[in-house]
Amino acid sequence: MSGNKVKIEPPKIPESLTEATVSDNEWADGQEISDVIFQESGVHNQSAYKLYLDRAVFRNVAFRGTSLRKAELTDVRFENCDLSNIDLTELVLHRAVFQNCKLLGMDLTGSTLRNVRFTQCSADYAVLRFANAKAVVFDNCSLAKADMSNMTLSQFFLKQSNIDGAQFSQTKLAGIDLSSCEFNGIGATLEDLRRSIISPGQASVFAANFGLIVKPGE
Results as ranks from 00 to 15, higher is better:
residue 170 Q to K: 15
residue 163 I to A: 05
residue 125 Y to K: 12
residue 135 A to Y: 15
residue 156 F to L: 10
residue 133 A to I: 08
residue 129 R to P: 00
residue 173 L to N: 11
residue 144 A to D: 13
residue 142 S to D: 12
residue 117 R to A: 04
residue 159 K to G: 09
residue 171 T to G: 07
residue 143 L to Q: 01
residue 115 N to C: 02
residue 170 Q to C: 14
residue 162 N to H: 14
residue 111 S to P: 11
residue 157 F to K: 05
residue 159 K to W: 11
residue 111 S to W: 04
residue 173 L to A: 06
residue 135 A to D: 14
residue 155 Q to D: 15
residue 167 Q to W: 13
residue 120 Q to I: 01
residue 149 S to K: 06
residue 113 L to E: 03
residue 118 F to L: 03
residue 116 V to H: 04
residue 138 F to C: 03
residue 129 R to A: 11
residue 155 Q to A: 14
residue 118 F to E: 08
residue 161 S to R: 00
residue 150 N to V: 12
residue 110 G to F: 02
residue 116 V to K: 02
residue 163 I to F: 07
residue 127 V to Q: 09
residue 126 A to P: 00
residue 166 A to R: 02
residue 171 T to V: 10
residue 131 A to R: 05
residue 154 S to H: 15
residue 108 L to N: 06
residue 129 R to D: 14
residue 163 I to T: 08
residue 109 T to D: 10
residue 120 Q to H: 13
residue 137 V to W: 01
residue 127 V to N: 13
residue 166 A to Y: 04
residue 110 G to D: 05
residue 118 F to I: 00
residue 153 L to I: 13
residue 115 N to W: 03
residue 154 S to I: 04
residue 142 S to A: 12
residue 156 F to G: 05
residue 147 D to W: 04
residue 147 D to V: 08
residue 122 S to M: 09
residue 135 A to E: 15
residue 133 A to K: 04
residue 139 D to K: 01
residue 129 R to K: 15
residue 148 M to G: 04
residue 123 A to I: 07
residue 171 T to Y: 08
residue 116 V to Y: 00
residue 118 F to M: 05
residue 109 T to Q: 10
